[in-house]
Design a protein around this nucleic acid. Structure first.
Lengths: 209, 209, 209, 209
DNA sequence: CATGAATGAGGATTCATTCAT
DNA sequence: CATGAATGAATCCTCATTCAT
């Protein structure tokens, strides 16, 4: 009698681009090259050289130059969001979550000036179509922000009558402007020193009087 | 003998470009062409055609393509600031002045969607060098804002311990983000409806508790 | 009293490309460059250099590289047809007209080997879409040929029962193959020596027995 | 003592490519791919995919892309000639042989439109060097044609004073033009219907009056 | 033999800017 | 002042071919 058990296991593995080493290698190279030269001044050949691959190799992983920019942002945002979700969960309440969110946002970019340059300056040097794609990627982040705001409005921390969209635009606009100014000023001052001031002002604006 | 007196009078007249009709004509054409096509998709020839002049004529009034963008912003900003200064003077106190400033900012762009598109989207599609020039022009506006904030801090309306730069970044970042979202959403909702909400949130954030 | 007569004459002149000197200059340069290097080996810069103009100037007169080839053929064909129509009129009958047509075809290309190379070899190195455009231009020539054949069929010179299209294909195919062979053989023999032989064979094939 | 006899046998076996299954597999794939997409629009990867092999495998059987085209033509021509030689032998006389030759030529391509497209259109999209190689392969076919013509000239069927080369160019040129027109017209009419008309015209042209 | 990821040379085209008229 | 024909630099992308596995 046959007492063997045969298991035939089909592992349908979706090999994503980001599992291929060259994909991330090119993205990291693009961040550096674009931060240092600007998007329009960064030729594909510059990115390829920085990544240590041939020009043509770029096109095995990216549809075109614009796709590199989009993918770069998508990839960085994915990691950013993943971390952010964990961090937010540790927040005691909406204010605390918002505080942690801002701290995280500031600290990630403070620790990666190349990335900060790309997201705050170079990513915007694009036509409206590209901006819409970027906004779509940003959506998830803004949703997290909205959730926190709604939570705060419901539990009495934040003004329950405020317009969530406008509130979100204030929070995001303030963070964005603060960081962009820091980048435009060539990182000459500490971004992190501004975090408490920003948080204080924003929480004051949102709070339920 | 000569009893005549000769007077040689040098009238040093600074004929500014903006006094020449074609200068403004080209700037208005540029606003329209760039708003409709995007900065990089707007060739000099398109601006020239829109302005009803020859391509070469553009170069009699502007150093290069970038200079059109800069001049356009400078010109619009000049008028904007002039009006703003008058308006601010009518403000009873810092809060009132800030309120009027925001109202004015929103209403000017709500009434000129082409200009809104150019300032919020197209003007940013430029390298860092250009962004610095734009920031320099923006400086005067931010100074007005700073003055109001300081006035409010000194007379007890606003939190006297806040960092003026951060406060300014919150105010400007919020306004900027609000308007950019409106433009990105193809003006589908009323920008002016947001003004009270924005003002309420910001004043709440700034106020002295 | 006014005895002057004022005439105001509006001359609406359709300035065609071929009236502009650079247009023909570029076409002549293209014939030479393409004949000497082959169509795919002839870069735009080569044509420009041969024509003594800048690369960009080419694009003031032609839509793209393919358009140069099409325009070249159209232009040469136009002159060819104009001459041919005059020549045919001097023919006594269909056979004579056909004879003169063949003589003209052979002699034009015998006297312009660059053009022969381009029409017989390079013009064919193109995709089907381009070939269709070329055929459309060739149409007028084939119509002239058809007219002669029909005339001969009606007046008893040619076999009145033959299929005109097939007859035309024989005449054109024979001429074309004869000339192509001559080109492929590097013009090593006299093309004109073949004219009588070709005419004799073709007229024999067409004649009414 | 060594009573063994050692025989060292060199079997010089010329394994021709065409005996290897993948060789013909790739050629058939190339005919289809090139007919459907055009030579320049047919990337090696397209042929490989159509053949069900990897890109690199192509290069185990063919020197380069051009070699596929040449080999394809050589292979098809070989079969074509082999059949033709048998068919010709059944011809009663030169006229009959020529008739059978034309019938065969038309029927082979009428039955293989992909091949017709490749030989009449795509094969010509090549530089002069390639055209010479193609002509060399075509030589054998033209020799068969020459033999028939000479036979007819010697036995009084055809005009004994005609120039064989020109006569051959007429026959081949007519057949070629007839078929090319049919291909260019997307096979919209029956090619075979034209065979009797073509034969009648050509034999009339060749015959000894 | 077979694979397919990696290579890198090569060129048509655009468009800001100039300058002779 | 105004014109607009002419310039020519500058680059993304394709794809035939290679070669390590």
């Amino acid at each position: 009698m046959n007492n063997h058990s045969y298991f035939l296991i089909f592992l349908v593995v979706n090999i994503m681009n980001r599992d291929k080493p060259k994909y991330m290698q090119i993205i990291e190279a693009a961040v550096i090259a674009i931060a240092e030269n600007g998007y329009h001044q960064t030729q594909i050949s510059k990115i390829a050289k920085q990544a240590g691959v041939a020009d043509g190799t770029i096109y095995l992983y990216f549809k075109n130059k614009e796709d590199i920019l989009i993918s770069l942002f998508k990839e960085k945002m994915r990691v950013f969001i993943e971390n952010l979700e964990e961090i937010i969960q540790t927040g005691a309440n909406a204010s605390d979550k918002l505080s942690k969110m801002i701290d995280n946002h500031f600290s990630v970019l403070a620790n990666n000036k190349h990335l900060a340059t790309v997201t705050q300056l170079e990513l915007r040097q694009s036509n409206k179509e590209l901006r819409l794609k970027i906004n779509a990627i940003l959506k998830e982040y803004l949703n997290l922000l909205d959730n926190i705001l709604v939570e705060g409005m419901m539990n009495g921390e934040f003004n329950p009558t405020m317009d969530v969209r406008v509130a979100r635009q204030m929070v995001f606009g303030t963070i964005d402007e603060t960081i962009t100014s820091w980048v435009m000023n060539d990182f000459r001052y500490s971004l992190l020193d501004n975090a408490p001031k920003v948080k204080h002002l924003l929480l004051n604006g949102l709070k339920n009087n």
